[in-house]
Computed example of a mutant assay.
Amino acid sequence: MSTNYKCFSHRDCEFYPCHRNADPDHFNCLFCYCPLYFLGRECGGEYRLLDNGVKDCSDCLFPHRPENYDAVVQKLQQKIFKPFDKK
């Protein structure tokens, strides 16, 4: 089975790649807006908190690394979908 659904690069985007330290040849745009942002300190990525308390993820490449697709989905399953399990 193909795994092409796990990664794509939108090279025509005017912001591509949107992180200054990103490797454009290994950059996944699937999670353009990080679905883990709302998890705060439990997101698993590299972030820093600004003086005003805002989470700055501009140096984080965790969701943009193609090999991390499964880890992102797993974390979403644990934090979002698990609480709704009826077990």
Rank of each mutant, 00 (worst) to 15 (best):
L50F: 02
K79S: 14
R41W: 05
P83S: 07
F27Y: 15
Q78Y: 01
Y37M: 08
R48Y: 03
C34K: 03
R65S: 02
H26S: 09
C13T: 04
Y69S: 00
K75W: 01
C60G: 02
A22R: 11
E14N: 11
P63L: 02
C7H: 14
E67M: 06
Y47P: 02
C34Q: 06
R65V: 07
D70C: 06
F62Q: 04
Y5L: 11
Q74C: 06
F15C: 09
L76C: 06
R11C: 08
S9H: 04
D56P: 01
H19S: 03
V72W: 01
E46N: 13
D85R: 15
K87F: 12
H10W: 14
F8D: 09
K55M: 15
Q78D: 11
L76H: 00
L49S: 04
R65G: 00
P24H: 06
L36E: 02
C43R: 02
F81V: 13
Q74I: 01
D51H: 05
F84C: 10
C7W: 11
R48K: 11
L49V: 12
E42P: 00
G44T: 03
A22K: 05
K6D: 00
N68G: 02
V54F: 08
D12A: 15
Q78S: 08
C32L: 10
R11D: 08
K87E: 15
E46Y: 11
F31L: 07
C18V: 05
D23F: 12
Q77S: 08
F31Q: 00
Y5V: 08
C13A: 15
D23S: 13
K86M: 11
C34S: 13
F38S: 12
F62C: 01
H64L: 00
P66Y: 06
C29F: 04
L39K: 10
N28Y: 07
V73T: 09
R20C: 08
L30F: 09
Q78E: 14
F15L: 14
R48A: 10
C43M: 06
F8G: 05
D59Q: 12
P63F: 01
L49Q: 08
L61S: 04
C34D: 14
L49K: 03
D56H: 03
V54L: 12
L39C: 07
D12V: 07
F27N: 00
C18T: 08
C32G: 07
R41C: 05
K79A: 13
F31T: 05
L39R: 09
Q77T: 10
F15M: 12
S2F: 10
L76G: 01
A22T: 11
L39V: 04
